[in-house]
Write a protein that binds this DNA or RNA. Structure first.
Lengths: 192, 192
DNA sequence: ATTCGATCCTAGCGCCGCTAGACAACAGAG
DNA sequence: CTCTGTTGTCTAGCGGCGCTAGGATCGAAT
């Protein structure tokens, strides 16, 4: 039995290595550079080994997305917990969210832009994704305003942040005025 | 002279055919299906002909983006011109923008998501792109509120719409509640 | 009629995601 | 300790991608 356990541990370790390497490569050179050949070379195994862990490249992206979603949730919770008052909490959330997107662009893409084969906004949505939304909801639900559904408000605020994050990083918005944009959003959307 | 003119006309016509075909194919089967081989086959020329018009696939995407941006600007202007009062104009703008994104997803991607090799938010940005932003600014500038720069407000409102459009189409937001989301955005962000 | 340049196509390069089938390594049985 | 069967890994290759070199063809101008 112990032999089997050891093999399973090794297998799990290698799977983590694959995900970590894919993430690293994506952050360094973009997702286009994450090819199965390069990935295999970096983990010092042959290509088919990847396919014994994941159905394909898509699932690898999905694995990075799940890992990233957990980190995003943690970052948002940490930031909001350290802030006093509703307005400050919302501001801290916005900053934490945009900082995460700016510092981990490839991971952010894996979660929100690329096709990782994951179900979103359904009952079988993986826990980390649900939890990331829950982290936003915990803070934003209390500033939705009277008669506005907390979930709906969270969706709209989140979408606004997402728009700022993606348009900025795609060069569609000049990066200079990020700060006043966040201020404007935080001043207008929530009822504080 | 007339011979040369005819050839130039034919050349221009073929270029339009390439762009139109790429757009059609992208809307039908997604941008991944727009390969140089398939595109060449559809226009009934060989692959290298594409490269006598465009530097590569990227530039073809860029051409579709410019065409789309002009249409988006026109759609926004038409919708806002037909609305009475600031609040209604902003609402009409939001609906027109999101409708365009929903009805022309591939074109929308070409403009705002994909790399078409175009410069954005710079002085050498192509006219259609500047004009699309201008169309938004014309309507949104007047509801920015006191002390808020019209351009900045337009950027934020636009980013919010962009977030709603992309997250909805990527399946990250359930499509049912689109309407109340737009209402919320229009009620809160502008000063009407 | 002949030249000569523009135009277009065939063929192919190196890369991609993915997989079939050969081969080695090793746990468990005798 | 040897044999055997499974498990795991690799080599090699398929079809398709963006892109390009070089040769054939066609038509305008002499």
């Amino acid at each position: 039995m112990s032999v089997q356990e050891r093999k399973e541990r090794e297998r799990a370790g290698r799977e983590r290595l694959i995900v970590a390497t894919a993430r690293e490569l994506a952050e360094q050179q973009g997702w286009d550079a994450v090819t199965t050949r390069r990935l295999a070379e970096r983990i010092e195994y042959s290509q088919p080994v990847l396919y014994s862990h994941f159905r394909g490249k898509r699932e690898i992206i999905g694995a990075v997305a799940l890992q990233g979603a957990a980190e995003l949730a943690a970052a948002v919770r940490a930031a909001t917990a350290a802030a006093d008052g509703p307005r400050e909490r919302v501001y801290a959330l916005a900053r934490a969210y945009l900082d995460f997107a700016a510092r981990n662009p490839a991971v952010y893409d894996a979660i929100f832009q690329l096709d990782g084969g994951l179900p979103y906004a359904q009952e079988d949505t993986p826990e980390p994704l649900k939890d990331a939304f829950a982290a936003l909801l915990e803070c934003l639900g209390e500033v939705a305003g009277d008669g506005v559904h907390p979930g709906l408000f969270t969706e709209v605020f989140w979408a606004s942040l997402h728009g700022l994050a993606t348009l900025t990083r795609a060069g569609r918005l000049p990066p200079e005025d990020t700060e006043p944009r966040v201020e404007l959003l935080v001043d207008r959307l929530p009822m504080v």
